[in-house]
Amino acid sequence: MMLIKSNKFYFSIGVAGLLFLSIHLLMGNHRSENYLSKVKSGNGTFIQSKTFGDLSFDLTYCSPRLMAIKQSANGEHSSHEFKELKRHYQAYSNYSLKMENLDGKGLLKKMIQNQAGYQELINYLSFGIEEDISLCTSTDTLACSFTHFERNFDLAPYAQIEIGFAKEGIAEKLCKEESWTIQFDAERFGIGMLNFRFVAEDVCQ
């Protein structure tokens, strides 16, 4: 009788543990989804935009948490690994720059006159653009560490470029500032310097 009672006790603990674990996992997923939708709809906070005529520039701040969520989207990472990923991305400040032709036609073709110009523009977007981007805080100006141009062969009316600034603990340091600015010298687009300001209070929670 004692044995049955004790088995029942352990069984209940096991069920409760499993329930707790699944609720925790579900809540975790839910929280990630909430965070993703918060970023996607974050116009004026996570996403800073500027429009000039038919040309729009959207810069999205990809926080360490967002990068970790994206990386572990297939669910193969445990919560410990997720934390490790997040810690790894603390060394970077990542952004995604989307330049779009609002009249719906290919962006690159809109900007060039001939094939040589097209190739030159591709080279600029792949390599040269790095020199035109910097991150400014109240005390420092950081040069861009890397960019990655996602080619779509002008099938879409936009060009997307991933931007990164690498420095130990930069994400944490930026969050201690009131705000910081990403400067992009859009001279190539006939517009000149564009400032995208991110407020720590809006994007660091």
Binding site: T51, F52, G53, E187, G190, I191, G192
Partner: peptide
Amino acid sequence: YELEQQIWNQLNQ
């Protein structure tokens, strides 16, 4: 000329 044009582009927008 180009720099002035950039200023006017932003200013007008």
